[in-house]
């Protein structure tokens, strides 16, 4: 295992000892996780491990009951998500981060709350995804799953993030579409954006990730380079049986 090297600069995102849950039920029991500047970290693990809750804490939607969220070394625990967005933290949540009853253009108009100009947002989105340009007046909810996810990704691109959170991009999408989406993730990563990505389809993301962390029962159990981690994965999912 190669631990994440954080000696050079403070990581862009750091969770330390984060505990959180819903009501009286605690889901995260002290999560420690770091995303070094300019790298892609994949957070993997079975259902119910607490991946989405971890992301919820990181993006400000869920306030932790204990522990800290640091961004570039500054404590942002409890800062509202809309404030984080304006500081370059963009989250694409699980299950299509779009408004189904708004048109494509209106969805992009919402992005401007983060500070960008509509013209720039539209230009970026339609350039990268020409298909969205063709459908700018269509209700987002009537597009195919892949197109919807592209629209969500367009928000990630157009708001020029410093830190990008992606939750289960691949859910319910055909493998080809997933591959295309992760191609874009790789491009975004090359432009220097730090990315935390949650995936169930581990192999899909391991090709893009610099580091991978495995989460089980509300704790990050191991962190390492993708190559080291792949073997551990089939154990985590299928219980030690290798194909």
């Amino acid at each position: 295992m190669t631990p994440i090297d954080t000696s050079a600069a403070p990581p862009l995102l750091e969770l330390s000892g984060v505990r959180a849950g819903y009501g009286s039920i605690e889901v995260l029991h002290g999560v420690n996780l770091a995303v070094p500047a300019g790298s892609v970290v994949a957070l993997l693990g079975p259902n119910g491990a607490g991946k989405t809750t971890t992301l919820g804490v990181a993006c400000g939607l869920i306030e932790p009951t204990a522990g800290k969220v640091l961004m570039a070394g500054r404590d942002v625990t409890g800062v509202a998500p809309e404030e984080l967005v304006r500081r370059g933290v963009v989250t694409i949540p699980e299950g299509r981060g779009i408004f189904p009853n708004l048109t494509v253009r209106e969805n992009l108009q919402m992005v401007t709350y983060g500070g960008a100009r509509l013209a720039d947002v539209e230009a970026t989105a339609y350039e990268r995804f020409p298909r969205l340009g063709e459908r700018r007046k269509q209700l987002a909810g009537t597009m195919s799953g892949g197109e919807q996810q592209m629209l969500a990704m367009a928000r990630g691109l157009a708001s020029n993030p410093a830190l990008l959170f992606l939750d289960e991009l691949s859910m319910g999408l055909a493998p080809l579409v997933v591959e295309e989406l992760y191609g874009i993730v790789a491009q975004i990563a090359r432009s220097g954006v730090s990315i935390l990505v949650i995936e169930q389809f581990a192999r899909t993301v391991l090709g893009v990730a610099d580091y991978a962390a495995i989460m089980l029962n509300g704790l990050v159990r191991s962190v390492g380079r993708p190559a080291d981690i792949e073997d551990e994965l089939s154990a985590a999912y299928l219980g030690g049986q290798k194909p």
């Binding site: 998500p81 809309e82 949540p93 009853n101 708004l102 919402m110 709350y113």
Partner: peptide, 23 residues
Amino acid sequence: TRLGVAMRAVVDDRNLVRLNGAK
């Protein structure tokens, strides 16, 4: 208007509105 679009957006997904940066 953006304001009106955001009001309709809240109906769809309140949290996503926040993740877009609106209050």
